[in-house]
Structure formats: structure tokens, C-alpha cells
Design a protein around this nucleic acid. Sequence first.
DNA 1: TCTTTGACAATCC
DNA 2: TGGATTGCCAAAG
Length: 118
Amino acid sequence: MKPTASNGSEPRNFFQDVHEVVRLIPPGRVSTYGTIAHYLGARHGARTVGYAMLAAHTAEQYVPAHRVVNRLGHLTGRLHYTSPTAMQEALEAEGVRVEEDRVLDFAKLFWDPAVELA
DNA sequence: TCTTTGACAATCC
DNA sequence: TGGATTGCCAAAG
């Protein structure tokens, strides 16, 4: 809560960066926290990305957080949705097969910004 | 090979 | 105001 934005460095809100990348994820594709964190330059900042997702519902623009899962393909944030099945249904509506709170063919649906946006 | 610890940014109480 | 916590990942032991 102390935006020490008096330095020469640019403390661009990590949330905005994360939300921006998540919005770039095309429908029917999924990405992971670590990939986004790595794309932003923070390999160990995956946790921060996860927290940014927690605040996704506070963003002005809609953030398809349902397209972001952990590295194992688990729908970790499903409990944070309005309903426990909202995330799964949202993914299935886009053609993503979800079973047991896991994304099937996760390797094929995986979307890497560093590669797709290269 | 499996287990454990380190890491980054922001929010809540 | 500060410490603990959070939708976690990667590397070291």
C-alpha cells in the first residue's frame, strides 16, 4: 500500500501486467501461473501471479481467469468462482475438456505467451 | 528419484 | 503498522 513510485524504476502494477497477459489468452486455450510469471520476467513470482488472479474480479476489465490453471492443469481457482462448477463450465463452453477438476489434453491446449506472442 | 526450501508482490487484520 | 497469508513454481539437497 506504499506506492513508492518516486524511483527511476517503473513499478508498474504487477496486476495489470498479469491481467493483460491473461486477457491475451485465446478461447479454448489455457495457460499457467509460472509461464505468465516467467513471461513477465519473474520466474519465482508465480505466487504473485496467483494472487493477481485472486484480485481478477476486482479489475475493471474482465479477466478470463478460468483459462489460467496451475502447472499440473488443476483448476485451483474453481472455489473462488461464484459457483464451484462455473470455472469448469466456462472452460467446457470453450471446448476445453475438464474432468475431475483437471484439464484434459493440457499439453495441447497449453498456451505460452513467450511462444504464441513471439 | 523424491523431498524440502526459497522466491515475489499485494492484501487482510 | 507489521506479520502472516495467498488460486504456486523452480531448483537444490
